[in-house]
């Protein structure tokens, strides 16, 4: 088993770094090549969400990302925002998306969740075990299918 841990200041510029590391570790772990685009997008969305929440609540704490390949490739993205997160607000219907009243931030959040739910078969969003915050946990199979 190998683990790579990364924590970064909640700034948009670092999300790309997290994506690059996440995909590099996925490739190394043996995630199928045709899944890597989805891995890249999902890690990006989870980190973007965490950065947005830290900025919204003025939290200087780093966003924490842990990647491990024990049996499957598991990525955990942990934020420290004081909210009750769930994946319940995922699907916005098309006519809702184009509505004038829907703010760009709300749309981006909804679309971000739709992408996570759509691209990650094994996805969990739950409160962290200790303290305040949410963990987005994503799992991909490794090895030849």
């Amino acid at each position: 088993m190998a683990t790579v841990k990364l924590s970064f200041s909640p700034a948009p510029v670092h999300v790309r770094t997290a994506r690059l590391v996440g995909v590099a570790v996925a490739r190394r772990a043996g995630v199928r090549e045709d899944l890597l685009d989805e891995v890249r997008l999902a890690i990006g969305e989870a980190c973007t969400r965490a950065v947005a929440l830290h900025r919204q609540y003025g939290l200087p704490d780093p966003v924490y990302v842990e990647m491990s390949d024990s049996g499957a490739y598991t990525v955990r993205v942990v934020d420290r925002a004081p909210i009750e997160a769930s994946i319940g607000l995922a699907a916005l219907p098309p006519d809702e998306l184009a509505k004038e009243s829907l703010s760009e931030d709300a749309l981006t959040t909804g679309v971000g969740f739709a992408l996570l739910a759509g691209f990650v078969e094994d996805l969990q969003v739950r409160p962290v075990d200790e303290g305040v915050g949410t963990e987005v946990r994503m799992v991909w199979p490794v090895g030849r299918a």
Binding site: R19, R40, L41, G44, E45, T48, L97, A98, E100, E104, D105, L107, T108, T109, V111, G112, L115
Partner: peptide
């Protein structure tokens, strides 16, 4: 070669602005 939810949000914003 990469597009995320933030980029999609910007595109929808432009669509709405032009429509109105």
């Amino acid at each position: 070669d990469f597009l995320d939810s933030t980029g999609l949000g910007v595109l929808v914003g432009a669509l709405k602005r032009l429509r109105s």
